Amino acid sequence: MRVFVAGGAGVLGRRLVPRLVARGHQVTATTTSAAKLGLVTRSGAEAVVMDGLDAASVGEAVATARPDVIVHQMTAISGKPDIKHFDRWFATTNRLRTEGTDHLLAAAEAVGVAHVVAQSYGSWNGVREGGWVKTEEDPLDPTSTGRGAAAIRHLEDVVLKANGAVLRYGAFYGPGATDDQVELVRKRQYPVVGNGAGHSSWVHLDDAADATVLVVEQRARGVFNIVDDEPAPANEWLPYLAECAGAKPPMRIPTWLARPLAGPVAVTMMTEGRGFSNAKAKRELGWQLRYPSWRQGFKQELA
């Protein structure tokens, strides 16, 4: 197939594009910087500079590629995590998930692209009621990620309305995905908040890329949680991450102190977060994970 990967030079795009090329697909991958064109072409794809927030830029790139499927992997998450100022940190990503998604869907309609696959998020932002682990039938929490929750809701609504596929990826780890977090852990600047009972789901970049290839090739539709087998509370995964990184155990701070220091998003994630089940993706896509648990993956990546 002709596959158009918007955001092909991103942390997941760099794992996804070579897999698509290796499986015989003709891939066009975008980047926002001419300096990254070589990163894409070395993987065997055609590279194009595109501004996901510019409708004309998106329309021209898609019209030139004339793809069979569009894969939306555009984000702008880089640099030191700033969970305290979450809306500011995610401002451009939120626009890419709203305006950028709309531009891609408009371009898809103009060219006659029949299938769109889009990156969503499903790590700890499941609705905060009932059990700790959520399926695709459960709603996302409407407030836990600030303005980002509305942006994700928009992306999912319009992509599903277009009969596309929404992939709720867990928290990424792997080459280039968690370097900044690990640095904070080593500096003991990533504490466990309160009882640390809030659950998160993780997924290795390679497993996420493998699942995405399956969705593309099977032209799957609907929502899929792309996470590993073991949603876990912060009081388990964070100390283990520190151990794998050769760091001292993380500090623990009470909720009342964390709220002004780290902000409400961090407190919610650490104390009330809900993880996700991957049963549907494994059952319907035939997805097999290289790293069924973050326990294996953290150890492998940080060895």
Results as ranks from 00 to 15, higher is better:
83 I>S: 01
125 N>L: 04
283 R>N: 12
294 W>N: 00
204 H>I: 14
118 A>R: 04
131 G>I: 10
98 T>H: 09
296 Q>I: 07
216 V>I: 15
7 G>D: 03
125 N>H: 08
113 V>Y: 01
280 K>M: 12
144 S>F: 00
259 R>A: 14
244 C>A: 14
188 R>L: 10
252 R>V: 15
246 G>D: 04
96 L>G: 00
183 E>Y: 07
266 A>M: 12
20 L>M: 10
55 A>L: 11
68 D>F: 00
14 R>P: 01
87 D>Y: 07
202 W>M: 04
177 A>E: 00
131 G>T: 12
108 A>R: 03
85 H>M: 04
291 Y>H: 15
219 R>M: 09
153 R>F: 07
239 P>G: 09
59 G>R: 11
260 P>C: 06
29 A>I: 04
131 G>A: 14
270 M>K: 02
228 D>C: 05
183 E>G: 09
99 E>S: 08
291 Y>V: 01
2 R>F: 05
251 M>T: 13
297 G>Y: 10
186 R>K: 15
219 R>T: 14
250 P>K: 04
188 R>W: 06
53 L>Q: 05
45 A>K: 03
180 D>H: 13
237 W>Y: 15
109 E>G: 15
184 L>C: 06
97 R>A: 05
296 Q>R: 12
113 V>I: 12
173 Y>I: 02
146 G>V: 08
26 Q>M: 10
264 P>L: 11
255 T>W: 02
185 V>H: 03
300 Q>C: 05
147 R>V: 06
33 S>Q: 08
